[in-house]
Amino acid sequence: MSSVSAAGSAGLAESPRGGSGGGTTPSPARRGRSTGAGPLPYVLVAPVIVFIAGLAFVPAVFTIVQSFFTVNALDPPTRFSGLRNFRALAESDAIRSSLANTALYVVVGVVLSTVLGIVMAILLQRPFRGRSLVIAVLILPWALPGVVEGILWSGIFDPNAGLVSAVMNDVGLGGGHLLLGENRVLTIVLIELVQVWQITPLSVLLVLAALQLIPDELYEAAQIDGCSRWGAIRQITLPLARPGIAVCMVQALVATLNVFDQPYVLNGAAATGATVTMQTYFVSFQNLDFGQGYALSLFITVLTLVGSLVIVKAVYRKVEL
């Protein structure tokens, strides 16, 4: 017995510090294997990162460089022109008109899609029977291509057999009115309603995802304190949903700044509804002036980035529960 006790005492004396059961500290190699550290994960992910970076940055760099060159199939060869492309765009009446149109598209689209997204997300916040079906149906307009939506709504806006004309005739306003192409503001608002119909489902999902992170205990505490439903929305829901609302507004801004399908299908190349993105197509592929097309694309990109940063700075707030 004395020999066994001595051996046990020697084993305890040789054990490292901090061990609760006399275990040994694992070696660095074993710790690396147990935590999964090592270069292998980074090697496996590297091709995807390189592909995504190339897909994003190579066209961007190419566009930036080519926007300072004269790239015109009718005026070869390609040569450096400095800011000539940007000056030509600034002096173009068509570009200035399309910028004003695009500004109206952005205002109508961002405001309507954000307000509708918040309202519908609040209605869908609490589980109810059939909510999954409602969300599935809600996603359908977002899943449709813009060209298909333009074709569908062109029938609705048809002055002879369209739904809007029929309703106007039934209420005594007289049918057969040409809604698109005559009045600039009315044309833009009606076309943007079509795009709002497309982008609002994504706005709803983004805001709804933010609402799902709000604990129910906050609403229960507010109800105990006598807070009304509207008071809970104003003091709990909207402040805590600001990250989702910011993302919702950014995606609406990107979509409306780059709108092309709906105006082109519903109104063609008419100046009453032409956008900056449409002018990029006209300048590049109708005038064959790719240098100015690159310059206008660069301008739209910078405008999108600046607008997105302004929205994030103004709306986004970090939420800590």
Rank of each mutant, 00 (worst) to 15 (best):
L123C: 07
R96M: 09
G130S: 00
F62A: 14
P26I: 05
V58C: 04
V50G: 09
L116F: 14
F86S: 06
L133Q: 01
P39L: 06
S20A: 10
I122M: 14
S20W: 13
V115D: 09
E91M: 03
R96Q: 09
A46Q: 04
A53C: 05
V71L: 05
V43E: 04
S97Q: 12
V48T: 15
G32E: 14
L123D: 09
R84C: 00
L140Q: 03
W142E: 01
G22Q: 01
T35R: 13
L112S: 13
P39A: 10
L40P: 04
I135S: 14
L133K: 02
P28E: 01
G54I: 01
G32C: 03
L104I: 08
V108K: 02
G38W: 09
V43C: 11
M120S: 14
L99K: 12
T63C: 14
V58D: 03
F68P: 00
I95C: 02
R87T: 14
A60W: 06
W142K: 01
A94T: 13
R84S: 06
V107Y: 05
T24N: 10
R131H: 06
I52S: 01
S27A: 07
M120K: 10
G38V: 07
L99F: 15
L40Q: 15
D75V: 04
F128S: 00
G32H: 09
G82I: 01
R31M: 03
V58P: 10
V71Q: 02
A103N: 01
T102F: 03
L112P: 05
P141C: 04
R131M: 09
T63Q: 13
V58F: 04
P47D: 02
A53I: 00
I139L: 05
T114H: 10
G109A: 05
I135L: 15
G21K: 08
A100T: 15
L124F: 11
L104R: 07
I49R: 07
V108G: 07
A37P: 08
Y42G: 07
L124Y: 00
L112T: 12
V58S: 08
P28G: 05
V107L: 08
G22F: 05
S34R: 15
V107E: 00
F62S: 14
L133V: 12
S34C: 10
Q66K: 10
S132Q: 13
R87E: 11
N85H: 01
L116W: 10
L40R: 15
G109D: 00
S34E: 15
P39N: 01
Y42H: 03
P41Q: 08
S67P: 05
V137I: 06
I139C: 08
S27H: 11
T102Q: 09
V61K: 11
L133M: 07
G21Q: 12
I64S: 13
I122D: 15
S81T: 08
A53G: 13
P47Q: 00
P127K: 12
L40E: 14
V71D: 05
V48Y: 14
T24V: 11
V45F: 13
T24E: 12
L124D: 03
L44T: 08
A94K: 13
P76H: 01
Y105V: 11
L44N: 09
T63N: 15
G23C: 00
A121P: 02
Q125E: 14
R131A: 10
V134E: 00
F128Q: 08
E91I: 02
V71S: 00
